[in-house]
């Protein structure tokens, strides 16, 4: 990873179903709106840093409810990007049932 990230935050998965297909797509949509490079790691799992803009990679998060995710971003809009990602996860991926 090129240099230290501009922004790091940790957030807990709160929605019942965890990070499955639809949440993954929401994350990818949000991440792709930013220029920064964004990674997501499941600190409660393998801790592997996965590309926040890759639908295939994020599916490997293996993150059920209660998992702690670490979001990192590199770039000019890193703060906004991490903020948007964290908000999405905290809101249970805008899941009305959450």
């Amino acid at each position: 990873m090129p240099g230290p990230p501009s922004e790091i935050r940790e957030v807990t998965v709160t929605n019942a179903e965890g990070v499955h297909a639809r949440p993954v797509m929401r994350l990818v949509d949000v991440a792709s709106a930013f220029a920064s490079r964004i990674t997501v790691a499941n600190v409660s799992g393998t801790g592997e840093e996965l590309d926040g803009k890759s639908a295939m990679s994020l599916m490997l998060l293996d993150a059920p409810k209660g998992s702690v995710l670490r979001i990192r971003a590199w770039g000019e809009d890193a703060a906004e990007a991490v903020d948007a990602m964290v908000r999405l996860i905290e809101n249970g991926f805008s899941d009305p049932s959450a």
């Binding site: 297909a21 639809r22 990818v28 803009k53 890759s54």
Partner: peptide, 16 residues
């Protein structure tokens, strides 16, 4: 229909 959303997501995945 949502079942296929992820499929589209994977196919659009530039990293993949």
């Amino acid at each position: 229909a949502n079942v296929f959303t992820w499929h589209v997501g994977v196919l659009s995945d530039s990293k993949l």
